[in-house]
Simulated assay, not measured.
Amino acid sequence: MKVQHLLFSQVALAQDLPEYNLKQGNVATIVEHYPMLEGEEDGYSLEGFDLPHVTIEVPASQIIPIAQWQQEEMILAKLCSYLERGCCNYKTISIFSCKNKSLSIRVGSNFETFFK
C-alpha cells in the first residue's frame, strides 16, 4: 500500500539533494501530487526551501512527514546525549558522529549507521 502525503502538508527531505543544494531534513510544503500506477512510486512537487519561486519534483521515497522527522531528531539527540555522557560501556560501544545528525556506532565488531 502506498503512503500518500496530503497537499499543502509539510515534509522533510529524507536525503540530500545536492543538485539543489538541499540537505536531509530541509522542510518544504507539498504543492502537487503525481499518482502513479500500482508498483510505481508517486511523485510530489515541493516548495518553500527558502528559495523563492523554486519548485522541485521528488519521488515519494525522498520525503517524510515533518512529525516523523522531528521524532527521529528527538530520539537521535537523546541517544547522542546518553552516549556522550558515558552512560555505556565504551569498550563495546563507540560513537563516531553525533554532530552532523548522523549516528554511527560500533558494537563489538559490528558497525551500523542510524538516522543517516
Rank of each mutant, 00 (worst) to 15 (best):
C80Y: 04
E41S: 04
F111R: 14
R85V: 02
L103K: 00
G108V: 10
C88V: 10
V27R: 12
H53K: 14
Q24G: 07
F115R: 00
G86I: 05
E40Q: 13
I105D: 00
S45W: 03
A67D: 14
E40C: 05
L103P: 00
S97D: 15
Y20L: 09
L76V: 00
A12Y: 03
L22C: 06
C88S: 14
I75G: 01
K116V: 01
I75P: 00
L103C: 04
T55A: 09
A14S: 13
L46W: 02
V27Q: 09
E41W: 03
A12S: 13
L79T: 08
F96G: 11
D50R: 12
E73V: 04
L51H: 04
G39M: 07
N89A: 06
M1Q: 05
K23M: 11
E41F: 02
L6Q: 13
I63A: 02
T55E: 10
I56Q: 02
E47T: 10
K91T: 14
R85W: 06
K23G: 04
Y44P: 03
K2L: 07
G39Q: 09
T29C: 05
G86F: 05
M1H: 05
M74L: 15
F8W: 10
H53L: 12
L103I: 02
Q70V: 04
R106Q: 15
K91H: 13
N110P: 00
P59D: 11
S109G: 06
S81N: 14
H33K: 11
P52K: 11
E19C: 12
K2R: 14
E84S: 14
Q62W: 11
E32P: 00
L83P: 03
N89D: 15
H53R: 13
H5C: 03
S45R: 12
K2Y: 02
V11Q: 07
R85Q: 15
V27T: 08
Y44M: 03
L51E: 10
F115N: 00
S9F: 02
V31N: 03
E72T: 01
M74F: 11
L79N: 09
Q24D: 04
Y34G: 06
E112G: 03
L46V: 01
K23D: 08
L83I: 12
E112D: 07
Q70C: 08
A67F: 11
L79H: 04
D50L: 10
R106T: 15
A60G: 14
F114E: 00
Q71L: 14
Q70L: 13
I64P: 01
A28D: 07
H5N: 08
Q15A: 13
F49K: 01
I63L: 02
K2T: 12
C80I: 08
E73H: 07
C87A: 10
E32Y: 03
V54F: 06
E72Y: 07
S97P: 02
S109I: 11
L51A: 06
V11D: 03
A28H: 08
M1G: 10
N100E: 15
N110D: 11
G43N: 09
S97A: 14
A28F: 03
Q70K: 15
P35E: 07
K101A: 01
F111T: 12
A12G: 08
V27E: 07
D16I: 01
S9R: 12
R85N: 13
Y34K: 10
I105C: 03
G48P: 05
C87E: 15
C80R: 05
V107N: 12
K91D: 15
I95C: 13
A12I: 01
F114A: 00
N110H: 09
R106S: 15
Y44W: 02
Q4G: 00
G108L: 09
